[in-house]
């Protein structure tokens, strides 16, 4: 049985004519944060709160540039960041993205300290 009730129509993207006229930049490839939050509601209604949380983090991250995303991912890899680096990253995410991503990084910091995953020279 199909349940389409939660999938409203999204705002329309660039039209074919606009694209071929060359007026559309790479930013128009992106999904809107509101749309991601809507998908989070759908996921939660379908018994997957973790997928919903991911979609909400994603909505926060849509404010950041591609380069920032790549750099932040890199700093979360093992041994890349000091405790201070991660604290600063969390603060920055709090300001520029949102509280959920900041929370993810703070939680990482706690466990990286505990399990020795911070940059060796700066490990406390």
């Amino acid at each position: 049985m199909s349940d389409q009730s939660l999938t409203d129509a999204a705002p329309t993207g660039p039209s074919y004519d606009e694209v071929i006229a060359g007026r559309i930049g790479a930013d128009e490839l992106r999904i809107e944060p509101a749309r991601l939050r809507h998908q989070a509601d759908v996921a939660r209604a379908h018994a997957n709160p973790q997928l919903a949380a991911n979609l909400e983090r994603a909505a926060e991250l849509s404010a950041l540039s591609d380069a920032d995303l790549l750099a932040m991912y890199e700093s979360l890899r093992p041994g890349r960041a000091s405790g201070d680096d991660l604290r600063q990253l969390a603060d920055r995410l709090e300001r520029e993205a949102g509280p959920l991503c900041a929370q993810l990084v703070r939680e990482a910091l706690h466990h990286y300290e505990r399990r020795g995953l911070l940059r060796p020279s700066s490990a406390q």
Binding site: L29, R35, L36, A58, L61, S62
Partner: peptide, 8 residues
């Protein structure tokens, strides 16, 4: 995963 998801 969230980074990918953020771009749809």
């Amino acid at each position: 995963v969230s980074a990918y998801t953020s771009r749809g």
